[in-house]
């Protein structure tokens, strides 16, 4: 014991530098992977990959996963999980499509998704804290099924098409750039993503509640005795996750112009994958918004690149599986080298 403490004291300055370096790696390492993928793709597909059309395509394609992953990130920081986001998104899109068809004013329709999502998120949070279910996996597995069922019940399992242009604006509209030709546009959805990501990054860093989310993930007991309302924080994170699932529904409603009850089956797993590839710890307390974005981009670029090269979608799935395992394994190696034993 004396020996261990001695070596710990002696090694302290190195450790601090090392932990700083590993923290930098933790935050930005995955961005290197993104850049690497982009370079490889632009070499393999020089004419097409960097074209304005393809880039805006990528941005549109990653939108849904980006929003779901952002919500899941907040939950995963507390060492939680939200399996219900795919179903929440489906119920949201059906309700907003039905509200739109029923002639509700469009500003109200825009609010349907985020409202429904937040509501179910609060229910998830209350199930975890009030019912004291042993793990969020169970509560959200319950809502994954229950909400998907509700979605089919309200819609009769039938898609609703013909969503109005005002409601579709966020998901489909482009803002043309003054240069670069016909396809040089910024999709409105990209601006939405940017605002959401920057907002969450700021919130998690600067707002006390954001710091409390990290504290709950790091040591819930410490958070509790520090006077933090741990249950309140938990309800908040599931509400946030639901909110972003509702927002994703709005995005998809715009992109496709219709609500369909099978939307987002399995989407929660893609979102979890992006968060984990982005370096967030499944055990809570660790992970950055930038990392999540990089994780989303890795998955997006992989799909885009394999599509451009006409490689089968089955390979995409296989590769994403391998990348999840690799990303977490690299994380394990990095952590082992960074901690004293």
């Amino acid at each position: 014991m004396a020996d261990a403490s001695k070596s710990a004291t002696v090694a302290a300055p190195h450790e601090f530098q090392r932990s700083l370096r590993s923290r930098l790696l933790e935050d930005y390492g995955i961005l290197l992977v993104v850049v690497g993928m982009a370079v490889v793709l632009s070499i393999l597909q020089p004419d097409y990959f960097l074209s304005a059309q393809n880039l805006t395509n990528i941005v549109r394609q990653i939108g849904m996963n980006a929003l779901l992953a952002l919500g899941l990130y907040i939950v995963i920081v507390t060492a939680g999980i939200d399996l219900s986001v795919g179903s929440v998104m489906a119920l949201s899109i059906m309700l907003l499509a039905m509200a739109d068809k029923a002639g509700a004013p469009w500003p109200l329709v825009l609010l349907v998704g985020p409202f429904v999502g937040t509501l179910i998120g609060v229910i998830n949070g209350l199930g975890l804290t009030l019912l004291r279910l042993p793990h969020p996996f169970i509560m959200t597995l319950g809502t994954l099924n229950a909400v998907r069922g509700l979605c089919n019940l309200v819609s009769g399992g039938q898609p609703v098409s013909g969503i109005s242009d005002e409601v579709r604006f966020i998901g489909i509209a482009d803002i043309p750039l003054p240069f670069g030709g016909e396809f040089a546009v910024i999709p409105v959805s990209a601006i939405l993503l940017l605002v959401c990501y920057a907002g969450v990054a700021w919130f998690m860093k600067k707002v006390a509640l954001g710091r409390h989310i990290f504290a709950v993930g790091g040591n819930p007991q410490a958070a509790r005795v520090s006077g933090i309302n741990v249950n309140g924080v938990l309800v908040f994170v599931y509400a946030a996750s639901g909110f972003f699932a509702g927002l994703a529904a709005l995005l998809m409603a715009g992109r496709t112009g219709s609500g369909y009850p099978n939307l987002g089956i399995g989407a929660e797993l893609d979102a979890i994958a992006a968060v984990i590839i982005g370096g967030a710890s499944f055990f809570g307390g660790r992970g950055s918004v930038l990392g999540v974005f990089a994780g989303v981009l890795v998955m997006g670029l992989l799909r885009n690149g394999l599509n451009l090269m006409n490689i089968s979608a089955f390979w995409q799935q296989t590769l994403i599986g391998v990348i999840i395992i690799l990303a977490v394994w690299i994380d394990v190696l990095r952590r082992n080298s960074g901690t004293r034993t």
Binding site: V207, R211, G218, R286
Partner: peptide, 29 residues
């Protein structure tokens, strides 16, 4: 000890009582 190991020393010291501005129910640290 009830410390959050994933957070820096200064944040642990002020955890739950962060100095900052209160804006609409939230504290900007």
């Amino acid at each position: 000890l009830a410390l959050a190991g994933n957070m820096p020393i200064f944040e642990n010291i002020y955890l739950g009582r962060e100095p900052g501005r209160r804006v609409g129910g939230l504290t900007i640290v």
